[in-house]
Design a protein around this nucleic acid. Structure first.
Length: 882
RNA sequence: GGGCGCGUAGCUCAGCGGGAGAGCACUCGGUUUACACCCGAGCGGUCGUAGGUUCGAUCCCUACCGCGCCCA
């Protein structure tokens, strides 16, 4: 039994690492060096396998928020790891021109500056001003990305409105136009009176609102008929009243006309099976130009479709006194007018119903009949669904697939024209004689009298839908395109699955003949500390830059990675990030301590038989952790991978191995081996942590190894650490249990850590722990028994290899009550275990039907419980009466 | 109205057929020669409710209650 405990030398701090990690002082310079050294620059000629991810392009108007931080952290983890694994990794950055958002910003600035507005300036001058704004104030997010440490290839930065991408947009438009997949039609579209533009279905949010349901009387005398509406003002555009064909009540009216109040128009009563005879009076007013259902009915019955509002939602062209009134104003005024005429027969208020709202401005949508451009989506959507069904593209987590399928299987044609100026102008020219010509990007538009280009621009999502290949040079066959398409992975929030992912799938398959990415990882949203959505109005928005300033970029990244379970939202607060900062500090101090003791991966690892159990245990755990980390990251399980590294670092490497290493450093027989083991373990650990926490690992790893950078260091391979040896694990866990039990005794006896306690360890050899005596004594602060040793207490610990008696001289009477309480808890726990085991084992059905290994397991637990009860009972009986 | 998901320790979340876990918070002790952004020990849960399947259910099924999201 080895029980030597020589005095330990005072060790100084290493000169290479400052005592404290100061991310704010180091990060910017470190990032600059990475970029300048070209670590993030992809190289198609490298001969390495390619790995590519394109950034979800942030709006040019945007600044970094936690949603971006989420995307970027996860993408950076994936690409940094692949780069270390020897891939030619490309993370391509860029921005979206964000049509509506950007145009709004510039218009607002013009107004604030008292300058002429958009219309006064005219299209050319206004667009020039937007570019000017972009050059001065746009893209601040790019600088903010460097704060996070994003390993993007800045040499390949793109913008959706730059020359190359505009050419891609024009090429796709022309091709789809020629293929009949883009068409122009007069349709009822979602019109935003605020934006004064059409928007697509997906940009409409349906919200329950409290409105009113007003029942009005149309016609007179026997021909009178009651209809109900929530939008009274639309009566100005009614061109029919419809009833169900089988509805006896109105059979006599079908085919006749009735006179409308206010407008005095005569409109027909028609029959259509679409009408629900159970709803209201069974008769409905038909306003084809302002309601989607009515529009369909109008088409079926060839009804006139008068538009009664202008682009801003103001009543216009009705020839009534209501012209010039806002739609909501008119709603009230017309109702009052009808009431005065005695034509209001019922009013239900509040009446809860669903209304579409412009998702950007929040104003209620006004369905409006207008001439717009559409993408015929059916074949494209089907192909997108098939790409996922066939496994060409895999969506993670799989639960999100059903949402994707529901969407692509029921998709409506996509309205792509916007009545804005900032964006890709529709490349169609109209001739003086009704000609319509779609002009490709490399073609000359028709010239001559009377030719003019379409005024509208394309939906922003049209150009972002091309992003996975337009950014790589398409339509040219560039080396980048050849190599990096399809992209390896797409990482984005599930909230833009339909907006963006589906469009990229459609365009990618159409233009490239192949889905744009092999894997789609959809992450959740970041919420506040109580799981509430962050919003300006709630005042619970956290600025990622503020977090970086306070805790360092690594802490923010670590927090995000640790919270990112697939498909689920995460809560984030300062406390969480502070906890991650503590982790980086822990890592810093551990490495500093190791280096101060001469740890280095350059030292040769001794042969297995020359290593201590602790050495072999930590190297075995290192191997397991590396395997687990790889498996989890391959499966996009960021939270679990990060959590695993956290616990390995803190609980195993720091709390156990570093403590066990202290006595090993003091023993010349083990000191060198310990330095090598610690050096190897930290080297591998820092490399595994680098994708998550790039800055602190760069500082530590370069110092520890003398290497140039960890960014391009090799990812730990299968030979990391050592194979796990069950015997080693059992012995180390036994020692840990012994140590914990003695500490527990000391704590409950109120024996301060400093208080020297003489003790004798009996049975270490029999338990196979003869080599662990020094460590047990060191970590429990037990001194060797002297000649005058007079034990006053005993702690018995049952471990895998046997039973260890620790006899202690506590220099006086022990606290019997505390000891009785401690043993009492142990006894109760053992008794509960025994009861549970007996309950199962006395049930013949259990022993018959349960698998043998389960039954054996329970038997083993029962035996252990019996032994524990015997031990604890004995200790209790031996205690003096209190 | 249709669909999806969630209700597990005070808070935020893992676990998802055979011994209830983590982080934070909390309690007690500690100026130990890496770290108080720390160390050690501990407290804390009839796993939403009610049925069912099973030898056995936090885990599977059904219903209900509560919450969230998507679509119409």
């Amino acid at each position: 039994m080895t029980e030597t405990l020589p005095p330990r030398p005072i060790r100084g701090a290493t000169a290479d690492l400052p005592p404290k990690w100061n991310p704010g002082e180091v990060e910017a310079g470190m990032y600059r060096r990475w970029v300048e050294n070209g670590y993030f620059t992809a190289d198609p000629d490298s001969g390495k396998p390619p790995y590519s991810i394109v950034i979800p392009p942030p709006n040019v108007t945007g600044s970094l928020h936690l949603g971006h931080a989420m995307d970027h952290t996860l993408i950076d983890i994936l690409t940094r790891r692949r780069r270390m694994q020897g891939y030619d990794a490309l993370w391509l950055p860029g921005m979206d021109h964000a049509g509506i958002a950007t145009q709004s910003v510039v218009e607002r600035r013009l107004a604030e500056a008292g300058e002429p507005g958009r219309r006064e300036l005219g299209r050319v001058e206004f667009v020039r001003r937007v570019w000017e704004w972009k050059a001065e104030s746009g893209g601040s997010i790019l600088g903010q990305m460097t704060r996070l440490g994003d390993g993007v290839d800045w040499s390949r930065e793109r913008f959706t409105l730059d020359e190359g991408l505009s050419r891609a947009v024009g090429t796709v438009f022309k091709r789809m136009f020629d293929d009949g997949l883009i068409y122009r039609a007069e349709r009822l579209v979602n019109w935003s009176p605020e934006l004064q533009s059409a928007i697509s279905d997906i940009e409409v949010d349906h919200k329950e609102v409290e409105g009113e349901l007003v029942s009005m009387l149309y016609g007179d005398g026997e021909d009178a008929i009651v209809v109900a509406t929530t939008r009274v003002e639309t009566m100005l555009g009614d061109t029919a009243v419809a009833v169900h064909p089988d509805d006896e009540r109105y059979a006599h009216l079908v085919g006749k006309t009735i006179r409308m109040p206010i407008t005095g128009r005569d409109i027909p009563v028609i029959s259509d099976p679409y009408v629900d005879p159970e709803f209201g009076s069974g008769a409905v007013k038909i306003t084809p130009a302002h309601d989607p259902n009515d529009f369909e009915m109008g088409r079926r019955h060839d009804l006139p479709m008068p538009t009664i509002m202008d682009e801003a939602g103001v009543i216009a062209g009705t020839g009534t006194r209501f012209d010039g009134m806002d739609r909501f104003e008119a709603r009230v005024a017309i109702r009052e007018e009808l009431a005065a005429q005695g034509r209001i027969v019922a009013e239900k208020r509040p009446y809860l119903h669903s209304i579409g709202h412009d998702s950007r401005t929040g104003v209620p949508i006004e369905p409006r009949l207008s001439l717009q451009w559409f993408v015929r989506v059916e074949s494209l959507a089907k192909a997108s669904g098939d790409a996922v069904r066939s496994g060409a593209t895999t969506i993670h987590p799989a639960e999100m697939e059903s949402r994707f399928f529901d969407w692509v299987d029921n998709m409506h044609d996509w309205c792509i024209s916007r009545q804005l100026w900032w964006g890709h102008r529709i490349p169609v020219w109209y001739g003086p004689n009704g000609e319509m010509v779609c002009v490709g990007p490399d073609e000359e538009p028709p010239t001559g009298e009377g030719w003019r280009q379409d005024e509208d621009v394309l939906d922003t999502w049209f150009s972002s839908g091309l992003w996975p290949f337009s950014t790589l040079g398409w339509p040219d066959k560039t080396p980048d395109l050849e190599r990096y398409y399809p992209n390896s992975v797409l990482v984005t929030g599930y909230d833009i699955l339909f907006f963006w992912v589906v469009r990229m799938m459609m365009f990618g398959i159409y233009a490239m003949g192949e889905a744009p990415f092999r894997d789609v990882y959809l992450h959740g949203l970041i919420r506040d500390e109580h799981g509430k959505k962050m919003s300006k109005s709630k005042g619970n928005v956290i600025d990622p830059l503020e977090l970086i300033d306070a805790y360092g970029a690594d802490a923010l990244r670590f927090t995000i990675a640790r919270g990112s379970n697939p498909g689920t939202d995460m809560s984030l607060s300062h406390e969480w990030v502070a906890g991650s900062r503590n982790f980086t500090t822990k890592l810093w101090n551990a490495t500093r301590f190791a280096m101060a003791n001469g740890a280095s991966p350059a030292l040769p690892l001794p042969a297995v038989e020359d290593l201590t159990d602790a050495d072999r245990w930590i190297l075995g755990r290192l191997r397991e952790v590396r395997e687990q980390t790889d498996a989890l990251l391959e499966d996009f399980q960021f939270a679990k991978a990060t959590e695993g590294l956290y616990h390995f670092t803190w609980d195993e490497l720091c709390d156990w191995y570093l403590e066990l290493a202290k006595p090993q450093f003091d023993d010349p027989a083990t000191a060198d081996g310990t330095r090598a083991v610690l050096g190897h373990a930290l080297d591998a650990l820092l490399r595994m942590l680098h994708p998550i926490t790039p800055f602190v690992t760069e500082a530590l790893w370069t110092t520890l190894t003398g290497g140039e950078t960890v960014v391009t260091a090799a990812w730990p391979g299968e030979d990391t650490g050592l194979p796990v040896d069950a015997g080693v694990v059992a012995r180390v866990e036994a020692a840990q249990k012994l140590i914990t039990e003695v500490r527990r005794f000391r704590t409950e006896q109120g024996l301060p850590d400093r208080r020297s306690v003489a003790a004798r360890l009996v049975g270490l050899d029999a338990a196979g722990l003869e080599a662990h005596g020094a460590a047990v004594r060191f970590l429990t602060r037990l001194d060797r028994a002297g000649d005058d040793f007079a034990p006053t207490a005993t702690v018995d610990v049952t471990v895998a290899g046997g039973k260890v008696h620790v006899e202690l001289d506590t220099s006086g009477a022990i606290d019997v009550a505390a000891e009785r309480a401690r043993l009492g808890r142990d006894l109760a726990a053992a008794q509960k275990e025994l009861d549970q085991a007996d309950k199962k084992l006395t049930n013949p059905k259990f022993t018959e039907k349960a698998p043998a290994n389960v039954v054996d397991g329970i038997r083993g637990r029962r035996e252990a419980a019996v032994a524990e009860i015997e031990r604890v009972s004995g200790r209790l009986a031996a205690l003096p009466a209190s």
